[in-house]
């Protein structure tokens, strides 16, 4: 289980750390298990503390045009692009 989740989260976990991590995670999951005691029938999920109309922007080009800033912190760049190890599709 931990290996699969770590794979999904793209986090490398060394084999020797797996058992301890699995124990910690299952302790946490055991703790949150209490939620199942709560009767939540017909309770609407709460996704944000703010209840208001979504605010929008107008369709105007107001941003962009600074590729140097966008690329400034890149670990590897080439010819105006970000560069990563070759991806095989």
């Amino acid at each position: 289980m931990v290996r699969r989740i770590a794979g999904l989260a793209r986090i490398q976990v060394d084999d020797d750390k797996l058992p301890a991590l699995a124990k910690e995670l299952s302790a946490i999951l055991g703790f949150v298990e209490q939620l199942s005691e709560v009767d939540t029938e017909n309770v609407k999920p709460y996704t944000s503390p703010v209840e208001m109309q979504i605010k929008a922007r107008a369709d105007a080009v107001t941003d962009g045009g600074y590729p140097e800033d966008i690329l400034a912190n890149a670990p590897e760049k080439d010819d105006g692009y970000f560069a990563v190890p070759k991806v095989v599709e």
């Binding site: 941003d63 962009g64 966008i70 690329l71 105006g80």
Partner: peptide, 22 residues
């Protein structure tokens, strides 16, 4: 003219990473 969640332009064929907001 602008992107779904930012004010960067959408025109085709621009130089790489020039139509990119933070």
């Amino acid at each position: 003219d602008a992107k779904l969640f930012s004010g960067a332009a959408t025109t085709f064929g621009a130089e790489p990473n020039t139509q990119v907001s933070l």
